[in-house]
C-alpha cells in the first residue's frame, strides 16, 4: 500500500475548514454578545454630558459602538482561551494533524474570527446610532458627518488588530490554564502583581492606544500578538512532552 505524504499547507487548510464548519457556534456567541451590548448601548448611551448657560440647559448623550467593541474583545479572548483545550485538541487529533499544523490552523482561524468580529462591531455601531436617531427624532440628533470610506477601513483594520491582540493573549492564557495547579497559581499571581505594580496596566494600554502613527500601531499589535502566540505554542509543546 502506498503512503500519503501530506504537505503542511494541505493539512492546515483541511483543519481550518474543519474548524470553520465544526465550531460555528462561536458566531452564535458573537451575535449574542453584540445584541446584549447594543441593548445596553441604545438604552443608556455610552456617555452623558450636561451643561447650563443661564436660561438654556443642554443635556448631551453621545452614542457609539464602544460597548459593542468591548464586549467583542471579551468574546475574542474567551474563544481563543478555549480554542486549544484538551477536548478541542483531541477533536483535531482524530484526523490528519501534528502540533505545528494544529497551531497554524488555530492561528488562521483566530485571524478570521478577528476580521469577522471587527466587521460586525462597526456595523453594530452604525446600527445603534441609527436606532437612537429613529427613537429620538432627527431634530434632536447631531450626526458627525466627516466620516469617509477610508475611515471605515481604518476603523476595520484597527478593530481587527485589537481583536487579534485579545485572541492571541487569550490563546496564551488558555495554555497557562492547562498547566498544573501550582505552576498555574504561581504564574497568575506573578502576572497580576506585575500588572498592578506601578500602574503598569495604564502604561500597557497607553503603549497601544496612545500611538498616533498608524503603521507603528500595526507593528506593535502584530509583534505583541505574535509573541503571545509563539509563547502559547512553546508552552503547548512543553506540556505535551510531559504527558
Amino acid at each position: 500500500m502506498s503512503f500519503n505524504q501530506p504537505s503542511v499547507s494541505s493539512a492546515v487548510k483541511n483543519q481550518y475548514l474543519y474548524k470553520l464548519k465544526g465550531y460555528s457556534s462561536v458566531f452564535v456567541a458573537l451575535m449574542t454578545v453584540q445584541i446584549i451590548a447594543m441593548f445596553f448601548g441604545v438604552l443608556g448611551g455610552v456617555g452623558q454630558y450636561g451643561t447650563s448657560n443661564g436660561s438654556m440647559y443642554l443635556d448631551l448623550y453621545y452614542v457609539s459602538g464602544d460597548l459593542i467593541f468591548a464586549f467583542t474583545c471579551i468574546w475574542a479572548f474567551v474563544i481563543a482561551f478555549t480554542m486549544d483545550s484538551k477536548t478541542n485538541r483531541q477533536a483535531m487529533q482524530v484526523f490528519v494533524t501534528n502540533q505545528l499544523t494544529r497551531h497554524l490552523a488555530n492561528g488562521i482561524y483566530l485571524v478570521t474570527l478577528s476580521i469577522i468580529g471587527a466587521i460586525t462591531v462597526l456595523l453594530g455601531g452604525f446600527f445603534i446610532k441609527s436606532i437612537v436617531m429613529i427613537l429620538n427624532g432627527p431634530e434632536s440628533t447631531f450626526i458627525f458627518v466627516g466620516y469617509t470610506i477610508g475611515d471605515f477601513f481604518i476603523g476595520l483594520a484597527t478593530t481587527s488588530l485589537y481583536l487579534l491582540l485579545c485572541s492571541a493573549v487569550g490563546y496564551f492564557a488558555g495554555k497557562i490554564a492547562s498547566m498544573g495547579l501550582v505552576a498555574k497559581l504561581v504564574l497568575i499571581i506573578g502576572f497580576l502583581s506585575v500588572l498592578f505594580y506601578n500602574g503598569l496596566i495604564e502604561r500597557i494600554s497607553e503603549f497601544f492606544i496612545m500611538e498616533d502613527v498608524f503603521s507603528i500601531f500595526i507593528l506593535k499589535v502584530l509583534v505583541t500578538s505574535l509573541v503571545a502566540y509563539v509563547m502559547a505554542i512553546w508552552l503547548s509543546k512543553q506540556l505535551e512532552v510531559i504527558k
Binding site: F3, N4, Q5, P6, V8, A11, Y18, K21, G22, Y23, S24, S25, T87, Q90, A91, Q93, V94, V96, T97, N98, Q99, L100, T101, E240
Partner: peptide, 21 residues
Amino acid sequence: DNLKVSANMICVNDELVFSPE
C-alpha cells in the same frame, strides 16, 4: 507529532472526540 504517520494511520478507541457541532 509526525504528520506523515498521522495521515497514514488511524487509531480508533472509545475516546474518539469529534466536534460536538
